[in-house]
Computed example of a mutant assay.
Amino acid sequence: MEGLHDKVIVLAGAGGIATATARFLGAGGARIVVGDVVDTSAEAAVQAAKEAGGDGIATVTDIADENQVKQQIDLAISTYGRIDGLFNVAANIRADAVAEDTDAVDIDLAAWQRSIDVNLTGYLLTLKHVLPHLIAAGGGSVVNTLSGAAYAGMPDKVAYSVTKAGIGALTRHVARRYGKDGVRCNGVAPGLVMTRQTELNLPHEFREAILAATPAPRHGRPEDIGATVAFLLSDLAEWTTGQILSVDGGTTMRA
């Protein structure tokens, strides 16, 4: 993809979508700095970027820990000298977190708070420490990860849904506040994407029900999201900001 050569992109979070995105970024000649609570996931994303022709480094980062977030950003600056983009993709979607995320009456407040800390405050923390570098460099691109759950009015997963909706507001805030500084900020809202985590955590019957309600003939793949994110991080999307792109096979159709 054009418009990515030599760019330095921070990936906050790893896993299937991050690895697919890293592959597109690497193919465009970008350099990535990946942080995740699971070191092997971060390393897999870096390996994908290198195999595609790019470069990168991995580090252990809990996005809910400001000191660790700052360390990842400092690592990017000390290694590559600048930052051109940020992809926020981390989420609190461990199996136990999914099971604990129920509804407004029954959810345990500790489970609610952990989702807030990771899914929403974590994104604020990365922005807090990346934005000054983007502004100093004359601009850059941020892509945040939402979900169709932000719009669906789900009867369960109240914490996940609320935090993903909040990320939309955060995305528009950054786009509006820092646009004149050359910073673009957009979001992607995936539908059901068949990552390894999805296959482990979601029952077959649930997946089939989602597919039946999706206009497209298949579930999403990590590459579907990765291609969109890479475009938004590239110079090809230079006049796109403040937008949330639903990449979900047509499940969500918004004006």
Rank of each mutant, 00 (worst) to 15 (best):
G35T: 10
G15N: 04
E66Q: 11
G16C: 06
A42I: 07
D6Y: 02
T21A: 08
G56D: 03
V98M: 13
V69E: 02
V118H: 01
A44M: 08
A110H: 03
A91F: 14
L75G: 04
A76Y: 10
E2P: 15
A110W: 15
D108S: 00
D65A: 01
R23H: 00
L25F: 11
A27K: 05
T19K: 14
K70A: 13
A45F: 07
V105R: 12
G122M: 05
A90S: 06
N92M: 12
D108A: 06
T21C: 08
N92V: 00
N88E: 01
V105A: 14
A95Q: 13
R23K: 14
V37E: 09
G85I: 00
V33H: 01
I83V: 14
D96Q: 12
D101H: 02
E2C: 11
A52D: 10
E66P: 02
R94D: 13
A58K: 10
A42D: 04
I93C: 11
I73Y: 15
K50M: 10
V69H: 08
G15Y: 05
R94H: 12
A27G: 07
A14K: 09
A44F: 06
I9S: 03
R23N: 01
T121N: 12
Q68D: 00
G81I: 03
A91C: 05
G29E: 05
G53P: 10
A22C: 11
A12S: 15
D55L: 13
V37D: 11
T19S: 07
I77Y: 05
D117H: 12
Q47I: 15
I32D: 02
N119C: 09
A111F: 08
E2Y: 14
N88P: 04
W112Q: 07
D55C: 13
I32A: 09
A95C: 07
V105Y: 07
A22P: 06
Y80V: 14
T121K: 15
D36L: 06
D108T: 04
R114K: 15
R23Y: 09
V46D: 11
A14P: 10
V105C: 07
D84F: 10
G15D: 11
S41D: 13
V89S: 03
V60C: 13
A27T: 06
A64R: 11
N88R: 09
W112G: 01
E66F: 02
N88A: 00
A20E: 10
L120R: 06
D36S: 12
F87C: 09
K7P: 10
N119H: 07
G3Q: 01
Y80W: 15
A111M: 02
A20S: 04
T102F: 09
I32G: 03
T61L: 03
R82D: 12
E100K: 14
I73P: 06
Q68A: 02
R94M: 14
A76L: 06
R23W: 01
A18K: 05
Q71S: 15
W112N: 02
A27D: 04
G122C: 03
I17K: 13
A12L: 05
G85H: 05
G85L: 04
V37Q: 12
T61C: 02
A18F: 01
A97H: 00
